[in-house]
């Protein structure tokens, strides 16, 4: 039996430090800061799911906020009906998973770039549904006073305890995703992204994997939504609209799509940074959008690819210099021969 090392020492130290900081955070932050940190974790869960669909399997999905909305509304509606959070949230996840499968089907029929529009349109439809079906969703007024759940007799009503719930869920689903990506499935997803036609000829069932990457991504959005509703206590259609779906995609891409920690960084940039740059107000999103454009031109792999992009440019430069040196040397040899 070979001893397979799961993580490098460096990686372990980094994770340990990050976990320590997240555990200590409640004692150092005020109410609003803790709320923001919880919200960030919720967004990280959703963005991790999108990263699976977009970054690992290479599909365009532009209805992630809509899926998150489905999760949030499912939990809110069920909890209002007196059903426990612990039953409502798995239901929300399953509904999102099934919706993801349903949306994945046209994905198989159409050329890849149509998928962006199909999912965008689907998100629009979801928002219309949230807004118009007042009997169920409360329409534009939304659903208010969503309670936070209890946990084995313990109440998670306080900000700190709910934060720890969100943190625990983030870690659990983060680890699950990491395990999935290490399994043969992860390799099949990557193959799907790199070269779907070649993948098919090696026996990869691209239909099944496409559907699964979509459905699992949607399920993660559902988890995020299920936590979002009790965290914010109040939901309405606005946060689940098209612009937030685009924002999710930007999070993944700016952080580094197809990199495990890409969405973590991306969500921080999209959510936490604006809080510190509040004086910029709406300008922040403008800068954010234009930065995404600039990054696609100069750093298409995202912020986490910076090191590799630099190494690549160094390698290219070295190769060029070597070429010049060789050319000079061979010219010298020829000169000598002549």
């Amino acid at each position: 039996m070979k001893n397979v090392k799961l993580l490098s020492t460096q990686h372990m130290v980094f994770l340990g430090l990050a976990l320590g900081a997240l555990l200590l955070a409640p004692s150092m932050l005020k109410t609003y800061g803790l709320y923001l940190l919880s919200l960030w974790l919720v967004y990280v869960i959703a963005a991790m799911g999108l990263n699976l669909t977009v970054g690992y399997a290479g599909l365009k999905s532009l209805c992630h906020a809509g899926f998150m909305g489905v999760g949030a509304y499912t939990v809110a509606i069920m909890m209002k009906a007196g059903i426990s959070f612990w039953i409502a949230s798995p239901v929300a996840i399953v509904i999102c998973f099934v919706l993801g499968l349903a949306i994945g089907f046209p994905a198989l029929r159409v050329q890849l770039h149509y998928l962006g529009f199909a999912t965008l349109g689907f998100n629009l439809l979801l928002v219309l549904f949230f807004r118009n079906e007042e009997w169920l969703t409360g329409g534009t007024f939304g659903i208010q006073n969503i309670k936070r759940p209890g946990f084995f007799g313990m109440t998670l009503e306080s900000n700190t305890s709910f934060y720890f719930l969100v943190l625990a869920v983030t870690i659990v689903f983060g680890v699950l995703l990491a395990l999935l990506l290490r399994s043969p499935w992860g390799r099949a997803f990557a193959a799907l992204r790199d070269n779907p036609i070649r993948a098919e000829s090696t026996g990869v069932n691209i239909t099944a994997y496409t559907l699964m990457s979509f459905a699992i991504g949607a399920a993660y959005a559902g988890i995020a939504g299920a936590l979002f509703a009790p965290l914010v206590n109040f939901i309405e259609p606005a946060p689940f609209g098209i612009s937030n779906s685009l924002l999710f995609l930007m999070m993944v891409v700016i952080g580094g799509s197809g990199r495990f920690y890409g969405p973590v960084l991306g969500a921080a940039i999209a959510l936490l940074l604006p809080e510190y740059l509040r004086f910029l107000k709406d300008w922040y999103l403008a800068v954010f959008g234009f930065t995404a454009v600039a990054m696609m031109i100069w750093l298409p792999g995202g912020l986490l690819s910076m090191k590799e992009a630099w190494q690549l440019s160094q390698a290219k430069r070295a190769a060029k210099q070597k070429q010049i040196a060789e050319a000079a040397a061979s010219a010298g040899v020829k000169g000598a021969a002549a």
């Binding site: 043969p184 390799r187 990557a190 070269n195 026996g203 990869v204």
Partner: peptide, 25 residues
């Protein structure tokens, strides 16, 4: 598959031939 390692390319080429879809998860 340009972004996968050579070893992963090889494993990928055969991984779908053993076990079941769900089992491979």
């Amino acid at each position: 598959f340009g972004k996968l390692s050579l070893r992963d390319n090889l494993i990928l080429a055969a991984q779908e031939h053993t076990g079941t879809f769900w089992g491979r998860m």
